[in-house]
């Protein structure tokens, strides 16, 4: 039986995990394409601070993006995961990615490099 997918119940805010069940992030935003002659279509799941903050305040979202750019963390844009990458739906949503290499880990990588690895005992 093909189950329905309720975008807001089953996808938005859910935990995303990668191929090896490592956390990617939460589904912070959903992007739909509006088409003239067909119903709207889900084109991407967004992950990242800018995507979360956009849901609360546009101004906070652009401030976060500016900070990420200024510090050289990333372009400030959220990671966009196309729905074709979805492998499995459950309490967690599994996607066909390698989490630590994605844009969702931009802050993780930046903090490791600029702060954590400089403190003794970090395991680097």
């Amino acid at each position: 039986m093909a189950d329905d997918l309720h975008a807001f119940r089953d996808l938005l805010d859910k935990q995303l995990v990668d191929r090896e069940n490592r956390p990617v992030g939460k589904a912070d935003g959903l992007v739909f394409e509006i088409r003239a002659d067909a119903p709207p279509r889900l084109v991407a799941i967004e992950v990242g601070n800018a995507a979360i903050l956009r849901r609360i305040s546009e101004r906070l979202a652009s401030a976060a993006a500016r900070l990420a750019r200024r510090l050289g963390v990333s372009s400030g844009e959220p990671l966009r995961i196309p729905p074709e990458k979805i492998v499995h739906f459950g309490n967690d949503v599994q996607v066909d990615l390698d989490a630590p290499r994605t844009l969702a880990y931009a802050w993780e990588r930046w903090l490791r490099k600029t702060l954590i690895s400089r403190i003794p005992g970090s395991g680097v």
Binding site: K26, E108, I116, S117
Partner: peptide, 24 residues
């Protein structure tokens, strides 16, 4: 947990840099 990061006190700090940065 609210933001969906990797976390865990038993991991080495390099493996959950955001987690360690917060308490630091």
């Amino acid at each position: 947990q609210a933001l969906g990061w990797n976390w865990g006190e038993d991991q080495k700090p390099k493996d959950d840099a955001r987690f360690c940065t917060v308490y630091t």
